[in-house]
C-alpha cells in the first residue's frame, strides 16, 4: 500500500499545487511599471537631445501659449518654445543635479556614519551632535542660505542639496554599523586577530553598502524636488536653464490665465520619474531583506 503511494508521489503525473502566485503578480506589475518608466526617463534624457536636432530655445512668438496639439504635444510656453522639448531638457538638468547631489550626500553620509558607528565613544557623540544641529534647521532654509552665498549655477545647487541630505544617510549607516558591530561575527573576527581597520573594511562596510546604495537611489528624487523648489523660488539654477523648477516658475503667470499645460507637464515630469525610482528602490529593498532570502531557502 505504502509502496504504491511512494511511487505515485514521484510519478511525473503527480498533481502539484503552486503557492503564492497571487500576491506576486501585483508586486511584479509594480516592479515592471517602475522599471519601464525609469528606462523611458533615462532614454529620454540621454538619447533624445543628441538625436533630435531641434533647438529647445527656439523662440516662436507667433505660436506662444498654444495648447497641446499634434505639432506640439505638450503645447508651447509664453515665448512659443516647444514644451515637450523643454521638459526633456529640464529633466536632464534636474536629473543631473539630483544624481550628483545624491552621490555626494551618500559618500559624505556613509563616511561620517560609518566612522561614528565603528569608532564609537566620544567621536560618535560629537558627530551625532553635529548631525542633530544640522537637522534642527529646516532643510530648505539651510539650502537657501547655502545657495545665497554663491552665484547662481549648477554646483551651488548640488552643494546645497548634498549638504542638507547627507544627514539621513549618516544616521542610517551609523545605525546599521551599530547593529552589525554587536553581532557575534565581529567578536569572532576580533578573536581571530583582525585589526580595527580590517573589521571596518572587511566586515562592517560591505554590510552597510547595500543600505547606503538604497538610500542614495531614494535620495535622487528627493534631491530633484529640492532643486525644483530652489529654482521655483528663483534661487536655484539660472533662469535661462530649462530645469523643471524653472519651467514651473515661469509658468505661474499663465496658470492664473487658465493655461494649464506649461505647469502640468513639467510637474508630471517631476512626479512620474521620482515615483518610478521610488518603486524600483522599494523592490530592491525587498530583495536585500535577509528575511525574504531565508524564506526562499528552507
Amino acid at each position: 500500500m505504502a509502496e504504491t503511494a511512494a511511487e505515485k508521489a514521484e510519478r511525473p503525473g503527480t498533481a502539484w499545487r503552486s503557492y503564492g502566485a497571487k500576491h506576486r503578480s501585483t508586486r511584479t506589475l509594480r516592479l515592471r511599471t517602475s522599471a519601464a518608466l525609469v528606462a523611458l526617463t533615462v532614454l529620454a534624457v540621454l538619447v533624445v537631445p543628441p538625436l533630435v536636432q531641434l533647438d529647445q530655445q527656439a523662440v516662436d512668438l507667433a505660436a506662444k501659449l498654444r495648447p497641446p496639439s499634434p505639432e506640439h504635444p505638450f503645447g508651447t510656453d509664453d515665448v512659443g518654445r516647444d514644451l515637450l522639448l523643454r521638459c526633456v531638457y529640464g529633466l536632464r538638468v534636474s536629473l543631473l543635479v539630483g544624481v550628483a547631489a545624491a552621490l555626494t550626500a551618500t559618500v559624505v553620509g556613509t563616511a561620517v556614519g560609518a566612522a561614528a558607528g565603528a569608532l564609537g565613544g566620544w567621536v560618535d557623540r560629537a558627530v551625532m551632535r553635529v548631525v542633530d544641529a544640522f537637522s534642527s534647521v529646516p532643510h530648505l532654509l539651510l539650502g537657501i542660505f547655502i545657495v545665497a552665498m554663491f552665484r547662481p549655477g549648477v554646483w551651488p545647487v548640488v552643494v546645497s542639496v548634498a549638504l542638507t541630505h547627507w544627514l539621513s544617510t549618516a544616521r542610517i549607516v551609523r545605525a546599521e554599523v551599530l547593529s552589525l558591530r554587536s553581532r557575534p561575527f565581529i567578536d569572532a573576527a576580533v578573536s581571530g586577530g583582525a585589526s580595527r581597520w580590517r573589521v571596518a573594511v572587511r566586515h562592517l562596510l560591505p554590510g552597510v553598502l547595500p543600505q547606503a546604495a538604497l538610500a542614495a537611489v531614494l535620495m535622487v528624487p528627493h534631491a530633484m524636488w529640492h532643486e525644483s523648489a530652489l529654482s521655483f523660488l528663483g534661487l536655484g539654477l539660472p533662469t535661462h536653464m530649462a530645469s523643471l523648477g524653472n519651467l514651473i516658475q515661469s509658468a505661474r503667470g499663465s496658470l492664473l490665465a487658465g493655461q494649464w499645460w506649461p505647469t502640468l507637464f513639467p510637474g508630471l515630469f517631476i512626479i512620474v520619474p521620482t515615483l518610478a525610482v521610488a518603486g524600483l528602490a522599494g523592490a530592491w529593498r525587498e530583495r536585500i531583506n535577509p528575511r525574504r532570502r531565508s524564506e526562499l531557502m528552507l
Binding site: A9, T14, W16, R17, S18, Y19, G20, A21, R24, E295
Partner: peptide, 9 residues
C-alpha cells in the same frame, strides 16, 4: 509556505 512552493497529497 512561501510563494515558490508546490504541494501534493
Amino acid at each position: 509556505l512561501p510563494g515558490n512552493a508546490q504541494t501534493a497529497g
